[in-house]
Design a protein around this nucleic acid. Structure first.
Lengths: 412, 412
DNA sequence: GTATTTATTTCAGTACCCGAAAAAATAATT
DNA sequence: AATTATTTTTTCGGGTACTGAAATAAATAC
């Protein structure tokens, strides 16, 4: 009983979702073009378009992507009505918390950013902190708050049972708290919690057309190692996939990781692991808290200059990542790997070991090394993924189900 | 454009699928009960039931699961019309090939089984061999072949690009051949290729009610090590998930595996790996071709009697499986693990090392060891999974889309 | 034999889709 | 300037499958 019985109500909802989706993906366009892309008839688009405009969900704009601008009746563009709703996106990272308010068209309205200390949530409850941040944003945008449609939160860690908080997080004292509940009750809007790694993967699909129909993994290399998987099929993922790649074991009883376990990939391939190896610090030494970007650049420079220890450190990192990919490919068949984050600056130093390790398995031998794509900036995919999740959730859950008949009778 | 536009045709198809599914799951039942379980109205069930009976897809039977057998009009059971179609299931394993013919109700009609030699496909093309086996079955059941609806094939290995053959298989000379094409053209019916590990996982859900809503992995331990994943959500999996767990790397440069790679889980946990370790044969020795069941039992007996080498062999096997599960859990969050196959007879000997290794990771520490369920017989889940795949494919692709109006006008 | 109970069917109403034809709005041609 | 061609959008008539309510069917209980 996945979505209730199939009846005319579900026809309407499904087709309205398709219309909103195609505009979300490709921007405002004419009714005719929407009809062609969705497979609906022109007659249906006339009706659906009229409904959505009457309900204030879409609005008529100039058609930005006219293909036929010769003679004939000019097309009227149909785009999201930007004032229909507003969403607040919260990116809660290890060292900063950034709130963005967007309109229904995805345009940034306001932004508030604050640095985060490692002991931030030691004395202060994280749910209170988030409420206070949202309140700051609310006071600066009172008019928009009237039409707040959703609050979406990006976090790092393992999601808790009801997806309302985290079971574990690299941010100290964040796990075990219901992050969404207080927001939902205070503002009375739907709230969503997403894994940063998952958003990174999804956002990359929006930004990289070559990946449109691929199954791929995104791997973040920096202060931590994180992964996300993205599948071309529509619909939500069946389960929590792409959980904690950075803490996948690479070597039994291996190097000490920040999470407290031994032999995680992160303990070899995150900046602190590379730093430790490059300076020949014993593997079981407690990891550094934070590695300044300058220090990391220096190790790269030393490796490029031929320093044996630095080269060895990057080799080990590539090997750990490669065996991780090797093991990942024994579970999910992927065609591409997207590498993101500051660690990609040293990819050339890791590549040989990474490829060797990837090939050292049956699936590597049969399928070859997946195509590797480098992107230094991880922030953009995450923001884009979070924005798209929040806005399409609004499209599907709030706007698509509104009944059209009511609107038409009002219009008469 | 996942499934075409939503219109009345898709309503009919979806609802007919729901009806066929619920009967497939729970057996023949009254229209009223079907209406309750599917959420459809009694009026709709009257219409849908009449259509499906008129088209010969369902037939009226005695209601086997009457709940109210007091007074009132007695319920009429609605069950699959067994003569509506027949399917041939082919289980192609390392050492045997078994064909089963089933009617549309899932009842076995005929069965043909032949042993398979390791060099079976050296001189003979596997597609020809399959055609010949099907022809044998066809000659014994000429009447049923008139209504053949599908041929479904269970294989071991990595599926090829179009799911018509294998990229790799533990059965020699099987990969790289289009197995389905010749069957489809000869008999003019839909053909399907499924991974044995995947069927094992799916079939287990049908057989084990406790797993109904769980996300779990099934791991086969025997002459090989294979895995399948099963998710509670409906619909097909987004990608090839659960590819080749047995050949996931456990130890870089570790023990030699049958596949030619070093350090696969299989090289430690399959019967030949345990045998090799128990007799202190060097890890890099070429694996034995087949291990007689008696030999394996003997090693178990020796381990139970306290033999150090045998105990060590099972320890290593448990450790390899445990780290495999550990790594798997870093990619997919699972709540249960079902162990199947002859190797489960020695599970008590592997358990401590398996659990230690599972716990030695972040996800193990946070989520604990997944609940472990033992089932010695792997054949039954595979057969059940294959049968359900073949029959529900017939339900969805062939019978649900038939138009109802035509049938009703014939009936008048 | 009548009342009660339960299952199924019939009927009238509704929502949404589609194809075809009509209307609207522009550019090109005469 | 009027007409023609072209393209977009709307209108109209027809069709299908759903639903709730009422009617019918087929048994048991009294």
């Amino acid at each position: 009983m996945a979505r209730g019985v199939a009846d005319t109500e579900m026809i309407r909802r499904t087709n309205r979702e398709r219309v909103l989706d195609v505009i979300r993906r490709e921007g405002p366009m004419s009714r005719t073009r929407i009809a062609n892309l969705t497979g609906l008839s022109n007659a249906s688009l006339s009706a659906i378009g009229a409904d959505l405009v009457a309900q204030g969900i879409l609005s008529e704009v100039e058609d930005t992507q006219q293909e036929n601008k010769g003679r004939g009746r000019p097309a009227i563009g149909l785009g999201h009505n930007r004032a229909a709703a507003y969403v607040i996106l919260i990116e809660l990272d290890v060292n900063r918390c950034r709130l963005s308010m967007l309109d229904y068209g995805g345009i940034l309205v306001d932004r508030v950013e604050t640095p985060l200390m490692p002991d931030q949530f030691h004395a202060r409850r994280p749910d209170d902190y988030l409420l206070e941040r949202i309140e700051t944003m609310a006071q600066r945008n009172e008019a928009e708050m009237e039409r707040l449609g959703a609050v979406a939160l990006s976090v790092q860690g393992m999601l808790g049972p009801m997806r309302r908080g985290l079971k574990w997080s690299p941010i100290p004292d964040l796990a075990g708290v219901d992050l969404l509940g207080p927001i939902a009750t205070t503002y009375g809007v739907p709230t969503h919690l997403y894994k940063r790694g998952h958003l990174m993967a999804d956002g990359t699909r929006w930004l990289h057309p070559a990946l449109a129909h691929a199954t791929y993994a995104t791997i973040f290399i920096g202060a931590t190692v994180g992964m996300g998987l993205s599948f071309p099929s529509e619909g939500p993922l069946p389960a929590d996939i792409g959980t904690e790649f950075g803490h996948m074991n690479h070597m039994p009883d291996g190097a000490l990781c920040r999470c407290g376990a031994h032999g995680c990939i992160e303990a070899y391939a995150a900046d602190y692991g590379i730093l430790r190896a490059a300076y020949s610090v014993p593997e079981h030494t407690t990891p550094a808290n934070a590695v300044p970007p300058g220090d990391f650049q220096q190790i790269i420079a030393r490796a490029r200059a031929g320093d044996r220890n630095a080269i060895h450190a990057f080799n080990n990192a590539g090997r750990a990542l490669g065996f991780g990919i090797n093991r990942l490919m024994s579970v999910v068949e992927i065609s591409h790997i997207v590498l993101l984050g500051p660690g990609t600056a040293a990819f050339d130093l890791m590549r040989p070991a990474l490829e060797d390790a990837t090939l050292a398995s049956l699936s590597g031998r049969i399928n070859g090394v997946p195509q590797i794509i480098l992107t230094a900036d991880a922030g953009e995919p995450i923001y884009r993924g979070l924005m798209m999740k929040a806005l399409t959730a609004l499209d599907h859950d709030h706007f698509a189900p509104m009944t059209g008949t009511a609107a038409r009778s009002i219009a008469e």
